[in-house]
Design a protein around this nucleic acid. Structure first.
Lengths: 192, 192
DNA sequence: AATTGACCGTTATAGTATTATAGTCATTAT
DNA sequence: ATAATGACTATAATACTATAACGGTCAATT
């Protein structure tokens, strides 16, 4: 029952953050949606930012599960990389939370939101890093700094999925897998 | 003499844009620094934005020369890529214009400035694209879409030079060349 | 023909009054 | 006792308004 109330509040806040963003959501609104008094929120959370952080904590857990679910053990590294990132992207599109928060960062720059989005990005990079480390041990990838490789692969994925389409035609999932493989795994140098 | 006055104005505007940014620079200020009446500016330029655009046009020409100057014909592609980008970066650091304008975009989002910065980025990408096309013809690089390759290489360079150092240790020029070569040219896949 | 700065309509800024908000806490309900 | 509540408060955001600054024009001047 105590967990029930906390979950109520989290769900209410999630809903409101997703619809209106972090700043535009008031504690009164959360209380109203959750059907609790505003004071009750402060029994379970220390502040508005704390509510956001707890939501992101849960979100990240879900996201990790989604990413794990996209992995197929026998498949090669690049394919799994793309599958996981694609699953995460789809997950984020389904739950408008991240989209709304990204927008908010873009046009208001809310510091608390910048911070949590960075956390989510770090989390994704850490996930990729794990997979890279494993792939290196398996001998599928050459020795390289897994943290930097994860960082660069993630950035390239975002570049391909989001940034490229701003100036050119959008790419589909298979094209993206192909490009990541070509540029990152095989390299475009000609061995002599 | 007529060019002299136009150049005066351009230099004055360049100085002011570099010091105070685009928005914070007034036409009166430009006129004062250039020691001309404000009306005179409008003999040579149609608007404030036009002044900015002409400045960027000249800036891009200079930048291209700097990039060309960094290229050594006999050197391999990656080395030249890094040399050119490094030269551009140094050039931008010396002339505070781009730094100031980047700041302005970050914390005010001035549309005119966003546009010209995008132009500069496009210009750099086009320069890289040319070099890539040449390297493919030379047989130094495999066949690939030069536009996309240029785009991705540029982004990776920025990721390594700017973004990585925000969360980890900054990298020096040789390290960056090494990483670009490793990830982009050679690839990190293990051929079986 | 080129240059100029006072001038104009519009936009931005500063100052202020008002509202809205995050967080508290005495009261109430359980 | 403990948990829940919403009126309350100090602070921060917003709306409003008066003022200043701005980009751009143009009649007067060189």
């Amino acid at each position: 029952m105590i967990q029930d109330k906390k979950l109520n509040i989290i769900n209410a806040a999630m809903k409101s953050f997703s619809h209106f963003g972090y700043k535009a959501t008031t504690m009164d609104q959360i209380a109203k949606i959750a059907q609790v008094g505003k004071g009750t929120i402060y029994t379970y959370f220390s502040s508005k930012e704390d509510v956001l952080n707890e939501i992101i904590k849960l979100y990240v857990i879900e996201m990790r599960q989604v990413a794990r679910g996209a992995i197929i053990q026998e498949d090669p590294f690049v394919k799994n990389f793309n599958a996981a990132l694609h699953a995460i992207t789809k997950f984020q599109e389904e739950h408008e939370l991240m989209i709304k928060l990204s927008q908010e960062v873009k046009d208001m720059g809310t510091p608390e939101v910048i911070e949590v989005l960075q956390e989510v990005e770090d989390e994704i990079c850490e996930f990729i890093e794990m997979k890279i480390t494993a792939a290196i041990q398996r001998g599928e990838l050459q020795k390289c700094d897994p943290k930097m490789t994860a960082f660069l692969m993630f950035k390239m994925y975002i570049n391909l999925v989001n940034d490229w389409k701003e100036r050119h035609q959008a790419l589909d999932q298979d094209e993206i897998t192909g490009f990541i493989k070509m540029y990152f795994i095989e390299g475009i140098g000609n061995k002599k």
